[in-house]
Design a protein around this nucleic acid. Structure first.
Lengths: 148, 148
DNA sequence: CTTGCGGATTAGACTCATTCTAACTGATTA
DNA sequence: TAATCAGTTAGAATGAGTCTAATCCGCAAG
């Protein structure tokens, strides 16, 4: 059950793609819709399965392409844990990830600005970081919480 | 030019393996030696190449086995960035990693206890983390600095 | 000494996420 | 209509990592 994009979401897609000289296509819209519909950090393959329900002809290569495009224009973040399949996350606010050892599920953990700042402060002079990734790995004792 | 293990290092290896009921073998010693000799976060393949210089018959599978064993008994840490080849690091003190976009080289960044603590504090109740990985990605303007 | 056991090692086959390639589509421009 | 060009497609190729089955080796029992 995949909702259509809201007006706002469609505009966001439109704008982000436009900024880097790319177009909204039905496939991109489908993939983006899938990402927003269920914010559970799906793998490429999961995105592929879900998007196919809506657009049966869609190919896996296109899903890879779309996701790469979205990452490139800042619409979506990649999440890697160890060497497992890459997952994707449309939460753009600064946050860390927690991977539940038991379920494999990934939870977003809010990252307060002061913590982010203290983290940046550990870089010696001369190190200039564009991206910081923080990931926890452990157990979450909770039935069905934050899947965002 | 690979130095032999110091007495201290050999004991460390001995003890860590012994604790989990495993033995010191020539192959394990060679791999451990390679890791300590050049602390530049080598990939499995790099470890393989280097160890071969000392023990030509060594097989890649064994290098995988040894490294997995070392990680299992806490002698060595795995370092992953995106989906690049896994790298290995014998620095056991809490630290973050900085990957230089230009060179691909990985630098250890010291992680003061208070920063680590503030990081842990962002976990909501019910989340119990055993491992925290912090990695920066950006540019380091420096000739040949910390390779440790 | 020699036999048997079990952990360690080995070479090579296999897996599977991701990337690459080359052909095709469809909208837009000349 | 033809040319162009981004996007899409199927399938082949890549490559890190894992698995498998055979072999090796140190050691304890006979």
């Amino acid at each position: 059950m995949i909702q259509n994009l809201t007006e706002h979401d469609r505009e966001q897609l439109q704008e982000a793609l436009g900024k880097s000289g790319q177009k909204v296509t039905p496939q991109r819209e489908a993939v983006f819709t899938v990402l927003l519909a269920q914010r559970d950090h799906p793998t490429v393959d999961e995105v592929f399965q879900r998007a196919r329900e809506v657009m049966p002809g869609l190919s896996l290569a296109t899903v890879y392409n779309c996701l790469e495009t979205f990452v490139g224009c800042g619409l979506v973040r990649q999440v890697n844990h160890e060497r497992e399949s890459t997952r994707y996350c449309p939460n753009l606010a600064p946050h860390a990830h927690f991977r539940d050892k038991a379920t494999g599920r990934v939870h977003d953990i809010e990252l307060p600005p002061e913590v982010l700042k203290s983290l940046r402060s550990i870089l010696p002079p001369g190190f200039d970081s564009e991206v910081i990734e923080i990931s926890f790995h452990g157990r979450a004792q909770s039935g069905e919480p934050t899947s965002n």
